[in-house]
């Protein structure tokens, strides 16, 4: 069964000509409809994240400032990021959707969660909007789960490094953050030597990949470098920052994945989960509408047992050397930080 947030009218968060636009959600919903899930799809009522839920990951002063800015009509926050009068309420819906979906998942054995909201979230910092993101949606849900004693793996396969999520959980021993992303690319962070703060050493795993990397390379990076860390961390929940701008058609980046690759990555994410019912996908980027629709269907089809047939997975691209380099650099950084051999599992 798929548990998904119910629709809200997001037309008010739009800047004409901007690639982060309402059509994205329509494409995503079409992708879900392509699976023909019938009674196996449950939509939950829209839920607005409370201030207490937001301040687990954001500064209260930032929330006040963002809310006031939107109330006054909004505008450009930086070169990339905009807000409108409606953005504050829509961002609160986006941040609350994961909480509502997780709560509903607990009422259904083995359900998969999908949070399809905008604006996206993984670039949003504790005190700053950036990269099209206002509130860090996945972080709000992850923080709620860790507050209940859960250990959360966040797997981020958006083509851009999720600097906001990494920063928020940098020193949190209850969150393992794993990111595959194109590098160099916005936002400039996400090097393999970024491994986490003193209380969470090794719990940030960055796998930077060159332009032209294909799906087999992304899977190899996760298999070779991230899987041992995931095994040792032993997560009780897996949340995925599911961006689709790593697709070969996306206009904002140059990775070379296909819909079939996202199906394979979704299956890997399911394998990281301790048991069915502990896996949820959060929409992040993805700006080519046909790629977005097909990739969402491929992702969800792979984990809900649909017979949807996505594009073939891709192979033979660049990046194998970079995977080895990332593993080596991560090992060096851990040795320096720990002052000793961290052991095979952490490498």
């Amino acid at each position: 069964m798929l548990i998904m947030n119910g629709p809200v009218d997001d037309a008010g968060h739009e800047d004409p000509g901007h690639p982060e636009r309402p059509d994205r959600l329509r494409a995503v919903v079409s992708g879900v409809e392509d699976l023909h899930l019938g009674d196996d799809l449950t939509l939950v009522e829209p839920y607005t994240a409370t201030r207490a839920e937001l301040t687990r990951v954001h500064e209260g002063s930032y929330l006040d400032e963002l809310g006031a800015f939107c109330y006054e009509g909004g505008g450009n926050i930086d070169e990339d990021t905009y807000a409108t009068y409606d953005s504050w309420s829509l961002a609160q819906y986006a941040a609350g959707a994961g909480l509502a979906v997780v709560e509903e998942m607990r009422r259904h054995d083995g359900a998969v969660g999908f949070i399809a909201t905008r604006p996206p979230g993984h670039h949003a910092l504790r005190d700053r909007a950036m990269g099209f993101c206002l509130l860090n949606n996945i972080a709000v849900t992850a923080a709620a789960l860790t507050g209940e004693g859960e250990r959360v793996l966040i797997l981020d396969w958006d083509v851009h490094h999720g600097n906001g999520t990494q920063s928020i959980f940098w020193n949190d021993p209850n969150v393992l953050y794993v990111s595959t992303h194109q590098w160099p690319l916005y936002p400039g962070s996400g090097g393999a030597r970024e491994i986490g703060g003193p209380d969470a050493l090794g719990l940030t795993v960055n796998l930077p990949l060159p332009a032209g990397a294909t799906g087999d390379v992304v899977r190899q990076a996760l298999d070779q470098v991230a899987s041992p860390v995931v095994d040792q961390f032993d997560p009780t929940w897996v949340l995925v920052s599911a961006g689709y701008d790593a697709h070969r058609l996306d206009p904002l980046a140059e990775l070379a994945l296909s819909g079939g690759d996202f199906a394979a990555l979704a299956a890997m994410a399911a394998g990281f989960a301790p048991r069915p019912g502990r896996l949820a996908f959060f929409l992040e980027g993805g700006y080519d509408l046909s790629a977005l629709r097909g990739s969402v269907a491929a992702t969800l089809g792979a984990v809900v047992g649909s017979d949807f047939r996505p594009e073939e997975p891709t192979t033979g691209g660049l990046g194998v050397d970079e995977v080895h380099r990332a593993q080596s650099e991560r090992g060096v950084a851990l040795r320096i930080a720990l002052g000793s051999d961290p052991g095979e599992d952490f490498l």
Binding site: E65, L66, F69, G74, G75, N76, I77, D78, E79, T81, R128, A129
Partner: peptide, 17 residues
């Protein structure tokens, strides 16, 4: 004040940050 950024906006001001 940078390119395209809303005049009077404290939130996104690179200089203030």
């Amino acid at each position: 004040r940078g390119q395209g950024v809303h005049a009077g906006l404290m939130l996104g001001s690179t200089s203030l940050q």
